[in-house]
Design a protein around this nucleic acid. Structure first.
Lengths: 156, 156
DNA sequence: TGTGATATGTAATATTATAACAATAACATT
DNA sequence: AATGTTATTGTTATAATATTACATATCACA
């Protein structure tokens, strides 16, 4: 599996930068949105919408739209990514440059690593230009086995 | 929109090559599987599972598992691709080399173009190698506007 | 013809996501 | 502070996508 760590720190950072971003853009970073962002980060892998819903528990009168709206807001503002191949959500590692992000998804440990590879981005730009296509959103999701899980080969 | 054409021809070709492939691999290309493959190709854009289900109509006693099983078979054998960002399915243009396929998805006309770009594939291979990641499946989906739809800009 | 494996039928249900409308909170202006 | 406006959240219902579990049928072949 990917290296796990105590990431209270990550959560805190993510929330702080979300606050800054929303302030700059004049957006409302409400309690609910903050809470959903925290929960997304709290999961090691990608978080499923209905798990977030459970985790919200009674704090908020949480029904599906509650969570999906918060996730929509967070996605629109580059704070989380949706992983389509998992129907799940991960926090964005660098919301200020929320572009050209690619994902390595480990099928064994369920961790998702976000990568920003200039070469991939530029080869995709060329591909798109060659087809005179105007891209709005690009998804690159690579499912497989991460380094750690390759080493454990069925030991866990 | 992408150029449309009468593609009875495409369907025929797709079915023929599926037949060949299944024969070579000793797989059963049953009537149901053939019919689902035809229906997938019959749609201009990507086909949704429940639309296929409707289109199967009374020919087969079609319930959801009927369609999903056929789609699973076709996917496993490289005959169709699932487009995750649409929850929909398209026929593979070259099932014999069903690898490194990327998709340009037009949000206006809903057509999906399959591309095979060596540069993209190799930059992804490098990215993956740099992370010592063992890829099993790679998804590249680019949503945007195709050339034709850019030219029509709201004329339709 | 019988046997095991593969494929399909069927009912039920799980999972993921949205629509529609009501209530509330925040914000801007007077 | 009162008002109008917009953005956010609450609530109910339902739509859309996909799977489980088990029964039945078909195929391949000894």
């Amino acid at each position: 599996m990917f290296a796990k760590h105590e990431h209270a720190h990550c959560i805190e950072d993510a929330v702080k930068s979300a606050e800054r971003i929303c302030e700059e853009r004049n957006l409302r970073f409400t309690d609910l949105r903050r809470r959903v962002l925290e929960l997304v980060w709290q999961n090691h892998g990608a978080a499923k919408a209905y798990d977030l819903l459970d985790q919200l528990g009674d704090e908020y009168s949480a029904k599906p739209p509650t969570v999906y709206r918060a996730l929509d807001f967070l996605q629109e503002n580059g704070l989380v990514h949706k992983i389509n191949s998992l129907n799940a959500y991960v926090g964005c590692q660098h919301p200020l440059e929320h572009r050209d992000c690619f994902f390595l998804i480990c099928s064994d440990c369920q961790e998702v690593a976000e990568c920003c590879a200039g070469d991939v981005a530029s080869s995709i730009r060329e591909l798109v230009a060659a087809h005179h296509f105007a891209p709005r959103r690009t998804t690159v999701e690579i499912e497989g086995q991460c380094q750690q899980c390759q080493q454990c080969q069925g030991l866990d």
